[in-house]
Every structure is written in C-alpha cells, then in structure tokens.
Design a binder for these strands. Structure first.
Lengths: 162, 162
DNA sequence: AGCAGTTATATAACTTGTTATGTAATTTTC
DNA sequence: GAAAATTACATAACAAGTTATATAACTGCT
C-alpha cells in the first residue's frame, strides 16, 4: 500500500492538501443541498448569505465579503442572475457600480435554507472538524490573516535575497 | 467595511474556505519555486517526491500517493513527461499498467530541490501554520480520515431519511 | 478457446478558483 | 474644462481538481 505522500511530506504540500480537503467538503456539502432538492451550487451559497446579511452589495463588495477575486464574483453573480435569485442594477450615483440584491425568489430560498439546509451542513461539518480537537476555526482565521499579510512566503524571500 | 461572510458563517462555508486557503498557499509556494528558477508547478512536486521516495509507480499508485483522482494523475504525469522529468513504460507483465519513474533530469531536480526549495517552503509554511497554535497537521489528518470514511455528511443524511 | 467481467489508463466536459487585460465611468490635475 | 489617472466591472485564458465514460488489456469460467 502506497502511503500518502502529501501527508508524509508535512508542511511541503500544504497547499494541495488544503485544496483537496476543501474540494471534498464542497462535494459533500453539495450532496446535502441536493437532498433538499435545491438547485444551486455550494459555492453560490456564501453570496446569498452575504446579501441576506448586508442587503444590496456591489460586485466588489461581494467579492470581498466571500473572500474571492472580483472576476470570480462577477461570474457567480451572473449565474445567480440566470437562476433569478438576485437582481442587478447600476448604482444611481455611479454608473460603474452594480448593486446586487436578493430577488424575491432568492430571499425565499435564503429563508428556507436558514431553517433547513444550513443547520444540517453546519452540524455535519462541525461533527467532522469541531468535535475532534478544538478550535480549528480560530486556527484557520490565523492562517488566513497570515496569508493576507502580503504573502508571508514572498516576504521571507525578499529578506533573503536583498 | 464588509466583513468576511465565509469566516462569519463558520462551519457553513468550510469547503470554500479550505479551498481558498489552499489556493493561496499554492500561489505563495509557486513564488518561492520561481525564485529558484525552477520551471515546474507547485502541484507537480508531490509527484516527484512520491517517485523519489518509492521508486517507479503506476499512474494509479501515484494518484493514491498524492491523494487525487486517477484522471488528475494522468494529466500531471503527461505534463512531467513533456518536461522530461519522468519516464513512462508499460509494465512488462501487464500492458495496461504504465510505470512512471524519475528521469535523470527529474532525479537531479529532486536532489537539488531537497536541499534548497523544499526546506524553504517547509519553513515558510510552518512559520505560517505551525508556530501559531499547535498541531494543525494532526487536525488535518483527522479531518481527512473523517472525509475518507465514505463522506460523513452523506452518511448523516441517510440516517435521517431511512 | 472464447466470452464476460474487471481493471488500468485515457479522454472529455465541468467547477471554482486564479492572473492578466480591456473598457467605460468617475475623479483629479493643470 | 479637457487630459490623465483611477476605479469598477467584464472578459479571456489558465490551473488543478472533479465526475462520467470510453478503450484496451487482463482474468476467470465453461
């Protein structure tokens, strides 16, 4: 039996490792969503949640809220538009900005999800991550903050080469 | 300032969150690799490490070793073939199996990497993840084991519906 | 020996993120 | 007030994973 190199190499392959964990979690989350007969992708939910929480947001604000880049947000928003879950209109004071808001259908989906799918997903994931050995959410937050500090790895590199 | 919905929603968006952390780590890792003038992708390194560690492996064994699916392994191997870093030949006893091994050039790259890039990457990532608050590697291993148990989320679902 | 089933790899299409770059609207500067 | 710079979004091309399916080689049964 070949052992798991990524795991054995420890810190060397953390990128791949985080990524593949994320992909599997998303796939499992998708399973749960589909059991409820809901027709959206797992990755689209954070957008709806952000709009529900904050009201209308621009593309840029949405990207920031869900933590991805602007082109990614543009694409997901256009999918949600096609699904009729959000509305888009240019901001009155600045024609460049597009204000995205939950449509009636989108709001209904969010309201339904809040009391059905979301608790189920949270429970399943918490069962997987949280019950094990502690405050993984805090650890992830710390890692994200570290990454946000303008790429720690890159900084370390500059120190060395300059 | 819009807050980070993914983070605020806690366990609900763990998939996206792991994934985006992984992608950023990989991007940073790539930066380090390029500083050394090495022309491979961060995601290809685990394959070379696996071959260095275990000798010749088939496509299927490689997929298992680096923890991805077989089509993903097939693609990465074909990239490494084009780069001249590995050799491929059919297994003598079973023409279906393709034995992949490090080429001379590949072995040289691994030997060089072992003493230059890999320690640098490990150090940078450990600095980011390990120094903070403990044994994150153990936690990830536990999560991966949980996921491997045939999709925990899905099992939970079946309990409920049957 | 031949046929059925299984296994190993290849290929195609998709997902969800990325970077790089283009375009239109606004703001700044002279 | 017009030119230059900036900002917000859109578009294109790529990366690295996925699932689904096809093909070729092997194994087992009668």
């Amino acid at each position: 039996m070949v052992d798991d190199v990524v795991r054995t190499l420890g810190f060397l392959c953390m990128g791949s490792r985080f990524r593949r964990i994320g992909e599997r979690l998303q796939a499992d989350t998708q399973q749960i969503i589909e059991e409820y007969g809901i027709v959206i992708q797992a990755a689209q939910y954070p957008f709806l949640a952000a709009l529900d929480r904050a009201g209308a947001l621009t593309i840029g604000e949405l990207a920031q809220a869900v933590g991805i880049t602007q082109p990614g947000a543009t694409r997901t928003v256009s999918q949600l538009l096609e699904l009729g879950l959000v509305d888009m209109q240019a901001a009155p004071d600045d024609q460049r900005r597009r204000l995205i808001s939950l449509s009636r259908k989108g709001q209904e989906l969010v309201d339904y999800s809040k009391q059905s799918v979301w608790p189920r997903i949270s429970a399943a994931v918490a069962d997987l991550c949280g019950d094990l050995n502690g405050p993984i959410l805090a650890q992830l937050a710390a890692i994200e903050d570290g990454l946000a500090e303008a790429a720690l790895a890159r900084r370390a590199a500059k120190e060395e080469t300059t």
